[in-house]
Design a protein around this nucleic acid. Structure first.
Lengths: 158, 158
DNA sequence: CAACAGTGTTGTCAATGACAACATTGGGTC
DNA sequence: GACCCAATGTTGTCATTGACAACACTGTTG
């Protein structure tokens, strides 16, 4: 391969990064899907959330650079493929929240907002692990505590 | 100024970024301090947390590029100044958590871990706002909901 | 004064992202 | 089968950028 060959397939550097980010979101979506399918009719709701979030967290720490790309959001304006892949992955979070609401485990309210908060929490934790601000050995404990507290905090008031 | 002048003061590009990140953490620390001092003996604990977190969130969205630098963690190995400035800023979160524990508003447990989760949540939300994944108009609502749920989720079990 | 530390200046280098011009190839059309 | 065209790859060049060396100026200090 010559140094200029990629130009045939990608307009510029950013296009390459966009494609990588898109692929990353697809893989992340698949990872989440696998985690959610695995625990489908087994385990209670909180275990399902723990599994999904844990899967996300490990994906994020095992693909640190990729995740940086994904959440950097420096995509080409109009890079719909990236946005769409992200939305698909994220949609599973929203679905999970709706599931919890239907089960009476989570309070009513915009599922997107709840999902966003959970997603953001995981993302924040993994970012700190990836940046070295927090030791990787703390990841599982943090995630588990965060999810537990999220579930408690979003539980319907009796 | 000539193009090479900065080299007299910074070993390389990364050193410049490190210095910027450090200054950012100092400013963030000051912002947090101001928010916490302002509400010192006025308003209940949850209002104090809301204020502090809101201050952080706005700092992060108004200084998006700076915050990216700060949490990127690509600092020179041994850039203690950055790490220390970050710890100072972060320490205020921990202090606030301890305050809540003393007031009986938060459950006992490692205050660092609780603070980390709160910090990470805010960080995750602001990252998504900064990347455009979430509209800036949703920031306040998300932060407020997140803090409320955090406080509920970390409340001592009666 | 003389030496020196601190700072600024010019000039150059290697790496990198972007680009143009040309070559190869394989499938489709007449 | 001859021809054409689109897809892909190649070489070469350019501007930008981070890094660096060599030299110049200035103020302080012995």
């Amino acid at each position: 391969m010559s140094h200029a060959a990629p130009r045939r397939h990608f307009a510029d550097r950013q296009a390459v990064l966009d494609a990588l980010a898109e692929a990353g979101f697809v893989r992340l979506g698949a990872t989440l899907h696998a985690a959610l399918t695995r625990s489908e009719s087994e385990g209670d709701f909180s275990a399902r959330v723990q599994d999904a979030v844990s899967a996300y967290a490990h994906f994020a720490t095992e693909n640190a650079a990729l995740c940086e790309l994904m959440n950097a959001g420096k995509h080409h304006p109009g890079a719909t493929a990236v946005t769409q892949a992200a939305a698909t992955a994220f949609g599973q979070m929203t679905d999970l929240i709706e599931e919890g609401q239907a089960l009476g485990e989570l309070e009513q309210g915009d599922p997107e907002q709840l999902g966003l908060i959970l997603y953001a929490t995981v993302q924040g934790i993994t970012t700190m692990v990836n940046s070295g601000a927090v030791g990787a050995d703390q990841l599982d404990g943090l995630i588990s505590t965060a999810v537990t507290q999220f579930l408690r905090g979003a539980r319907p008031r009796t």
